Amino acid sequence: MATKTFSLPFLLIVCIFSQLSSTFGDPSVKDLGQHAGYFSLPRSKSARLFHFFFQSRNNSSDPVVIWLSGGPGCSSSNQRYISYLKISNLIYVDQPIRTGFSYANDSTDLRHDEDSVSNDLYDFLQAFFKEHPNLAKDDFYITGESYAGHYIPALASRVHNGNEKKEGIVINLKVTDISLVTATATWSAG
């Protein structure tokens, strides 16, 4: 496993900048509503999906959007669609397992098809909305790029089926068609 090392001068500069930023009233990471972390998956032995979550800069009741990247195996966390934050709460997920910072210690947790990936993402969303219950009632959109065109309809179907069967927290899914998902990604981001 590769580790990153930083020089002492670099770390001092970061600490000084952080202190100056808070001294002069610049927003902190907490103020900006940014969260990152892992959720474990109940259908796995040891898998953890990593995510970044950015709260809307406009209104906490703005829609929740999950951004999926393609590849397969491309991390969603390298995307920087800041304009989305003006109109939505945005989730990036490193998926499938062993992409980006997501990991598993058991090879049986690796996924090789859209159904398995969509089950993992559904479990992720259940954990996410359990941690953020105030967002569960908000409109929910699935979007992405490239190979995510395979995952988007699979996840939309999984969410729809989970809602119908009352398997957990009801997710207020607003898009169930891949063509509509593509259109959603281009709605006015101001």
Score class of each variant (00 low, 15 high):
S83P: 05
F140C: 02
T23S: 09
G144E: 01
Y92W: 12
D62A: 10
K4L: 15
G100L: 10
S107Q: 11
I178F: 11
A136K: 08
N78M: 07
K166F: 09
S188E: 13
D177A: 11
F53Y: 12
D139T: 08
I82W: 14
R57E: 00
R48V: 06
T99W: 00
G71T: 14
V181G: 11
S179H: 15
I171C: 15
N163I: 04
F54E: 00
F124Q: 02
S88Q: 14
D139Y: 06
S22V: 15
G100E: 01
D177C: 09
S77V: 13
Y84H: 06
A127H: 08
A189V: 11
I152G: 01
L12W: 09
N161L: 11
S107L: 09
D106C: 07
I178K: 02
K174C: 03
V14M: 08
L125H: 11
K45F: 07
A2G: 12
W67Q: 06
P96L: 03
K86E: 14
S102R: 02
F101A: 05
A127L: 03
R80I: 12
G190N: 12
Y103L: 07
K137S: 05
T184L: 02
F124A: 11
F53Q: 00
I152K: 02
I171M: 09
L12P: 00
L12A: 11
V65D: 04
P63M: 14
R111S: 00
L135S: 06
D94H: 04
Y122P: 05
A36G: 05
Q95P: 01
I169H: 03
R111W: 00
S44T: 15
L110Y: 12
Y84S: 05
T99V: 06
C15H: 05
S102D: 03
S188N: 02
S28G: 08
V117N: 08
V117E: 01
I87W: 05
G149C: 04
S146H: 15
K130D: 10
L155M: 07
S102T: 08
F128S: 07
I152M: 08
Q95G: 06
D109R: 03
I97T: 13
H51Q: 04
L20W: 10
